[in-house]
Nucleic acid binder design. Structure first.
Lengths: 358, 358
DNA sequence: TCCCCCCCAGAAATCGTTCTCTCGCGCTAA
DNA sequence: TTAGCGCGAGAGAACGATTTCTGGGGGGGA
């Protein structure tokens, strides 16, 4: 493990000054072709590779972007992370990944730590739409910061989808399937996405059934919570027409509990998820869910952070359109048993951009 | 976005030298309590935070570990990544995450790039047990490197499980359930895990049925491949007693195709997965799979890399024991129809450490 | 032919730390 | 009283790159 080659040694071997080596490699200035060739020869012969840390110290750019997400293991995030990493790699930049474990203090810590690293920018999915604010603002003052999926500070960069509209599409679809009475299984509304989805749920369900708008079960993002919530719904002895879940993991738990309790989905109750994770199409019944263009979002976030680093446009909200992916879990099978037939005119004209899968 | 505070300014405000500030903050030497207090006061008042890049340049330690995995989106990896990140965070270290997209050239590229970053160590799941070797060796010469899950160079650090033994447990379990004829759905055996699992499959299935040992379908790690493989199996018109999959994603596809083809699992054919991802318990039927202690592996890998950085013990293979998690997809339901009853004495005494779930 | 200007290469400063080296002070022992 | 020693703080040299500044040589114009 001997010392790596330095630019100084390359210069010596090439018989030029370190400055010239630097100029050759960065291509910043015209260099005498002869010296240039000698330099490149030496670089090649010695296998020289520039020390990025030294470069970073001098130039103040690290070509590194920090990313903080609430839970790496939630299958929603890896897809975004992958897209982000791929896009960064294209530009010879790297990803410093952190997991805030949905904890505001930890999140603030991580942001400070990333700033200490002199990262060029931050991609953040803030865990708490209120409590995360101060840390987010602090970080954004120092370095370009893009909120992704979740948002805490409205007037900073944000990449995501209109959650409320997406939830409206879910409810519209369920209504078309004949549902009138709903229950909602959410994760903590401290997450902006949960709050917005809930708002969408309440606003659109209220018109159909006032009581349903209040039938909200709030927990965390986990299968266990979905199980638990479904059990509560069953115990209350008042099965709704549909259980709307704020995330796929909850829906997995809900489906599981319903099966164990002998409640048939979609025959007796419809179920929907959110995020269209890898789980959704794999379940039985396959799960209707809302797909966000995660890859695009990841790419776009990187592009914004990079352009902001070069003094790009002022912060803006970049909203992508979500897509309702309708699967078995929300398709009424026994049309006759419902007040509104799913084959009615209304059902033929979906209100949202929806495609049908599986 | 004005310049951050430097140690020089802190020194000036505190009325001491930069060296003293450094000493106070690092706690490396005794410092006069008065100067110490003045320093800390200035640090506090100015909100000084050390520039990690400068520290790294000087000390040659970045407190950063690079990790390269073949596919972030494969739900197996995020769990490991999360554990790694958590363990690193405990020691005030950070994670530079890269996705090799299962491509050897890209992987080599990423390794070089990580070395340029002066990372303190590398965690790698090499995508090709042969072709990855030279890059892995090259990297390991420069910096502590731990192979995790997959392995390319046997005499370097490795953290994983005995894949062959784990596969043996799968086959033993299926044999106990009365299976004699098998088919195997694998991903590319260029991955060491796939190769070892295949070896386990072949070795143990051969004893039961020579032809089954050759019934191997090799593709990639994806649901689509599982679908495709199952269709081929069906088309061949010779349904085995069990389809053994080298990963959970393949199993998802297999289950899906079987359902669509009207083949009942586990009534007509048993199916097993591998990795015990979040998918396994969520499927219908729930999927028997092999659970590796991913969190432990992640933690251990970090510890090895850190201790190796301090000149720890020579490379060693750290094998954890995998656990066969038996679920519905491999439990024979119609005992009477099989030659060996699942309630026979043999079935009561499983050969491997297996627990029963769900 | 001479002067001026431009271009290119090298010297040296710089980025923000850490750390070695040096020096001064105070205390102890002879 | 003085020599020696130990401790602790500051000056300054690294770390490995980039970049400004400076100077020399060559070419073009008068």
């Amino acid at each position: 493990m001997d010392r790596p080659i330095t630019i100084r040694e390359v210069a010596e071997v090439a018989g030029v000054s370190p400055a010239t080596v630097s100029r050759v490699l960065s291509g910043s200035t015209r260099v005498n072709p002869v010296l240039r060739a000698k330099t490149l020869g030496a670089v090649e012969r010695l296998g020289y590779r520039a020390n990025r840390v030294a470069q970073a110290l001098r130039t103040r750019v690290t070509n590194t972007v920090g990313m903080v997400v609430p839970n790496i293991a939630n299958p929603f995030f890896p897809v975004i992370i992958q897209a982000v990493e791929a896009e960064l790699h294209k530009h010879d930049a790297r990803l410093l990944l952190c997991d805030s474990a949905d904890d505001v203090a930890q999140e603030a810590d991580l942001l400070r730590s990333l700033l200490d690293q002199q990262i060029d920018g931050i991609l953040l999915s803030p865990c708490d739409c209120i409590a995360s604010r101060s840390a987010v603002r602090m970080a954004a003052e120092q370095v370009p910061l893009v909120q992704i999926d979740r948002v805490a500070v409205r007037d900073l960069h944000y990449v995501g989808v209109d959650q409320e509209a997406a939830m409206a599409a879910v409810i519209a679809h369920l209504a078309e399937e004949g549902c009138r009475r709903f229950a909602y299984v959410s994760f903590s509304v401290r997450a902006s996405t949960a709050a917005e989805r809930l708002r969408g749920y309440v606003r659109h369900v209220r018109r159909l059934d006032a009581k349903s708008a209040e039938r909200v079960y709030s927990g965390d993002v986990s299968i266990a919570w979905g199980r638990e919530a479904a059990l509560r719904i069953v115990e209350e002895g008042d099965l709704p027409d549909a259980v709307v879940c704020a995330d796929d993991l909850a829906a997995v738990g809900v489906l599981e509990s319903f099966r164990r309790e002998g409640i048939a989905v979609p025959e007796e109750v419809l179920v929907t998820g959110f995020d269209d994770t890898i789980l959704a199409p794999a379940l039985t019944p396959s799960l209707t869910s809302v797909r966000q263009p995660m890859e695009e979002m990841g790419r776009e976030a990187v592009q914004i952070v990079r352009s902001a680093a070069r003094g790009g446009p002022p912060p803006r909200r970049q909203l992508f359109s979500a897509e309702l992916v309708i699967r078995e879990s929300s398709r009424r099978v026994r049309a006759a048993s419902r007040r509104v037939s799913p084959y009615s005119a209304r059902a033929q004209r979906p209100r949202s951009t929806a495609r049908t899968a599986r």
